[in-house]
């Protein structure tokens, strides 16, 4: 970061270090002097890691990819807040100007049974992918590209779907939830398809299957604290959880509408 107007911070970091998935971890304290306020949080960790490498020590492992706030890979609980103190900001988009000289920061991984720790601050969020795989899709005919606007979609529905689709699957909702619940994530994925005509054929089975997978992954359930919404870097709202609840209840009470009859094809 060349020639900015920033100043330098001297920080102390208490970082969770854990060598592998099933070993004990502990907090290790590092001094981080001369950190520019122009750096992003991850660039700060890069600097700390370079200094560790120079000393022949192993660097702090942390998740990151696009560093543009859109991929959902990064995520550190900084001083008790997933993605740190700035609202609607991923860890990679958080800058050191959000901190003050002399700050002591506690860096922890997402803590949830559904997010086993891979190493240090890295967690395995494959559980969220498995929830998506059970129902986060629509069935569409292949072939030529359909005409634009051939299927009318109310503008408000499209906007709500886009709000829900803003979810980048980072898991901050789970990390922030006192119950380690993945309901905000699952609700966002259910809502963004349920708002469209194209999402209707699987609407019931989607709600049933995604909620079942969410439970099977060992996530907790919502007690309506609202911590997820405030931690979400994309501003996903808890109203979507109510929508998921309604979809799930309707699907549960209406499933099995048609009984099989003699003469039904077994070939499917």
């Amino acid at each position: 970061m060349g020639g900015g107007t920033g100043k330098n911070l001297n920080l102390k970091l208490h970082v969770w270090r854990q060598k592998g998935p099933n070993v004990e971890g502990q907090f290790v304290t590092y001094d981080a002097p001369g950190i520019s306020t122009e750096m992003s949080f991850l660039e700060m960790l890069d600097v700390v890691n370079e200094r560790l490498a120079e000393k022949g020590e192993e660097g702090i492992a942390f998740d990151h990819d696009c560093r543009e706030g859109i991929c959902g890979t990064c995520g550190i609980v900084i001083d008790g807040r997933p993605h740190g103190p700035r609202p609607r900001t991923t860890t990679c988009q958080l800058h050191m100007r959000s901190f003050a000289d002399g700050d002591e920061l506690v860096l922890e991984p997402w803590r949830a049974k559904g997010f086993p720790i891979v190493k240090d601050l890295m967690v395995d969020r494959g559980s969220l992918d498995r929830i998506i795989a059970t129902g986060g899709f629509i069935t569409a005919p292949t072939g030529t590209i359909p005409d634009a606007n051939a299927i009318p979609v109310p503008k408000e529905n499209a906007d709500i779907a886009m709000d829900a689709a803003a979810c980048i699957g980072c898991g901050a909702c789970v990390a922030a939830c006192p119950n380690a619940s993945a309901m905000l994530f699952t609700a966002a994925k259910i809502t963004h398809l349920a708002m469209f005509p194209q999402g209707q054929p699987e609407r019931s089975s989607r709600a049933l299957r995604m909620v079942a997978q969410m439970d099977a992954e060992g996530f907790g359930s919502c007690t309506n604290h609202g911590e997820c919404e405030s931690a979400c870097p994309k501003g996903i709202r808890v109203e979507f959880i109510a929508r998921m609840n309604a979809d799930f209840v309707v699907a549960q009470v209406t499933k099995g509408r048609r009984e099989a009859q003699a003469g039904d094809s077994s070939a499917g």
Partner: peptide
């Protein structure tokens, strides 16, 4: 279920939206 969902807790956790009543 909710207790089991977080076997290892945080050293530091800051609530923004939750209330004394909700917790």
């Amino acid at each position: 279920q909710n207790k089991e969902a977080r076997p290892v807790g945080y050293r530091q956790w800051v609530g923004w939206e939750s209330t004394y009543a909700s917790r």
